[in-house]
Nucleic acid binder design. Structure first.
Length: 634
RNA sequence: GCCGGUGUAGCUCAGUUGGCUAGAGCAGCUGAUUUGUAAUCAGCAGGUCACGGGUUCGAAUCCUGUCACCGGCUCCA
């Protein structure tokens, strides 16, 4: 028989040959690297038999799919080990995930991270045995009998479409319900490590029992595993909570409250720089600034619908002279009230109102995380009121705007998602179609690649979410652009049209950076705390060699301050070495050493955080150069 | 909120099976040193061992409740 390879070439094989036979026919090297095969586009085991005319692609560990197969198999090995060490454990599910794999168990006795080495050792034994993974297809009854002691598996079997064939995979004594495919034998699992252990609800639903989830990762080689562990360490080093304290940017105080960050002078300064840029950019892009109070009468939230639909995220009302007031969880109702303060003409639209609006939302204690998930935060919010015929243009200009903003902060990779109508929603089909169409058209015109999240829109309209990728390739949800049909309706928002009739505007909610808290947290990790010059709270520190250089150091500081450079003078009685070390630890972009030589020549000796000692330069020249760098945000 | 873990000086951490006045480094203060590209030396000060209750002759250590934090689940800016 003949099979067809991806490069369209044909390969002659004996009848009944398997994918593995095909790999050996192609080459020894490939046979050693192969972990699975794709036959006519279907991912299968290597021992799958081939038919005449099949299109066969060999999957190796070099491909994302091969890696997934490896990790999925690693999850099986983990489950095997746990079943041996914890007899009576019940199996949940064990998939491959983006950086590794996990398996969920219901354990007969609690396990902690201290137990991971023992489980890992058992896994190593299983790997050493190199038992083949054997696939078997079976009927419902047989499957139900086989997993009689595994209620979670029975639940899964019960929910699989009855017409689908079931399959199980076995290695040695261990058998698991699984679609496959798997690596040929456990011995192919060369480099793996268990990472952590955590609770996870069965199937992600908190009404279900809590299972024990064990996370691990696996790679084709020890070298790659080592690299990955190195990356994890690097991420740890960049942790904004750690750097926030080290660089004296912010802290979260137990007595103030969980999820309520306090910004120290340097952190507040970084925020101010961002906020100034933000306001300037918005004014330049056709936005106006508005401001609203932090609390509002409960009536407002009843009209907006938040009282009914957003209650669980809002704080309890406070009593003010017998009237209930609520701390705002969102800015939109306030902005709508400004809109409604007088009659609006179609000629005024679009109206774009922006505010760095601080909101407070109840978040369950377990989800709080540094600056990334807090209970009080400032959204870089704006609401655009526009006519239906303006919707697409407006969305497109928001997209242009957000890409410009993110680029300014050094982000140029994003994942974009379009979320469409969910099951529970308000608004007419026509409106939804129109808005979704407008979002889609804007994305396409902007040339952005995007994914669609069907049914993931907000109840009041579809949205675009943008996740930025940082220096380590991690994704952060910041930007959101949401179309809203609901609030204009609820508040009876109108404009008078050309026809002298009242019409309903469409509202766009959008946050470009998301929240200042999250964005700064993300920036800290992106830059590993070493902000670029224009964002650094202290841009240069002047280090006099001895006390007699203090006057000259002061003159240099003066000169740089005149260029609006944020400069500090290190007047401590430390050695130059120590002063440099302190500045390095603080990640100050420029260290300027001044001693006799500099004083005589009117120069400074420049050391940059990024490049080290750069030699001496005339003070005037440096001042101009730094000013230029700040201006260019380089 | 739930599962597992953690909580000792401003920070990072020691503190044995419950047993002297709870230790160290860094940071801070004082003094000496006036220093040339990542840590000069010496001294001093600093702790309700997260908080409350209990067991014990005796608790940082054992039990228990609360709070906070860490890793996740879920949710989201």
């Amino acid at each position: 028989m003949k099979i067809i390879l991806p490069d369209k070439s044909q390969l002659d094989l004996q009848n009944g040959a398997t994918a593995l036979d095909a790999t050996s026919a192609i080459g020894k090297r490939l046979a050693a690297d192969a972990v699975a095969a794709k036959i006519n586009g279907m991912l299968v085991d290597l021992n799958h038999s081939l038919d005449d005319g099949d299109v066969v692609e060999i999957v190796t560990l070099a491909s994302p799919e091969g890696l997934e197969v490896l990790r999925h198999s690693a999850a099986h090995v983990l489950a095997d080990a746990v079943m041996q060490l914890y007899p009576g454990a019940r199996l949940g599910i064990g998939p491959a995930i983006s950086d590794g794999f996990y398996y969920d168990f219901q354990l007969p006795r609690p396990a902690s991270e201290a137990d991971l080495p023992a489980i890992e050792a058992k896994m190593a034994e299983i790997v050493k045995n190199a038992a083949p993974f054997k696939r078997r297809e079976l009927g419902r009854d047989e499957a139900n009998a086989l997993f009689a002691g595994q209620p979670l598996k029975l639940e899964l079997i019960g929910e699989l479409p009855p017409e689908d064939a079931l399959s199980v995979y076995s290695n040695d004594e261990f058998t698991d319900l699984c679609r496959g495919p798997h690596i040929p034998d456990t011995g192919r699992l060369k480099a793996f490590q268990l990472l952590s252990l955590a609770g996870a609800y069965w199937r992600g639903d908190e009404k279900n029992p809590m299972l024990t989830r064990i996370y691990g990762t696996a790679f084709p080689s020890g070298k790659e595993l080592e690299q990955h562990l190195q990356n994890l360490k690097e991420a740890e080093r960049r942790d904004h909570r750690l750097l926030g304290r080290q660089l004296d940017l912010f802290h979260i105080d137990e007595e103030v409250g969980a999820g309520l960050p306090l910004w120290h002078p340097k952190g507040a300064l970084v925020r101010k720089i961002i906020e100034d840029l933000w306001r300037e950019a918005h004014l330049a892009n056709g936005y106006e600034m508005v401001m609203i109070p932090h609390i509002a009468s409960a009536d407002l939230w009843k009209t907006s619908g938040h009282w009914d639909f957003y209650r669980e995220n809002m704080y309890s009302p406070m009593d003010i002279e017998g009237q209930e007031y609520i701390v705002k969880p969102m800015n939109c109702p306030g902005h709508i009230k400004i809109y409604k303060s007088r009659v609006r003409s179609y000629r005024e639209l679009p109206i774009r109102w922006a505010e760095l609006g601080t909101v407070y939302r109840y978040e369950r204690s377990g989800v709080l995380h540094g600056l990334l998930r807090v209970r009080g935060f400032t959204q870089d919010d704006a609401h655009i009121f526009c006519r239906p015929d303006q919707l697409e243009d407006e969305i497109q200009s928001v997209i242009r705007f957000v890409l410009f903003m993110l680029k300014t902060f050094g982000f140029d990779q994003y994942d974009v998602f379009l979320s469409t109508r969910p099951e529970k929603s308000v608004g007419s089909d026509e409106n939804w179609e129109r808005a979704t169409g407008a979002l889609k058209a804007s994305l396409e015109k902007s040339g952005l690649n995007y994914g669609v999240d069907p049914g993931e829109g907000v109840f009041y309209g579809p949205k675009i979410d943008l996740k930025i990728r940082d220096a380590l390739g991690r994704a952060w949800q910041c930007t959101t652009i949401q179309v809203d049909f609901n609030l204009p309706e609820r508040f009876d928002v109108t404009y008078v049209g050309e026809d002298n009739q009242e019409h309903r505007p469409i509202m766009i909610h959008r946050a470009l950076l998301g929240s200042l808290e999250r964005f700064v947290g993300c920036l800290i990790e992106h830059y590993a705390g070493a902000f670029p010059l224009w964002l650094a709270p202290v841009q240069a520190v002047i280090l006099p060699v001895a006390d007699r250089h203090m006057d000259y150091a002061g003159q240099v500081a003066e000169r740089l301050s005149r260029e609006s450079i944020r400069v500090e003078l290190d007047y401590s009685k430390e050695s130059v070495g120590k002063k440099i070390r302190n500045a390095e630890v603080d990640k100050v972009p420029y260290m300027l050493v001044v001693g006799d030589r500099e004083e005589d020549a009117g120069t400074v000796s420049v050391r940059s955080y990024a490049e080290g000692d750069l030699g001496s330069r005339p003070c005037e020249e440096l001042a101009a150069d730094l000013a230029r760098q700040v201006e260019e945000k380089s």
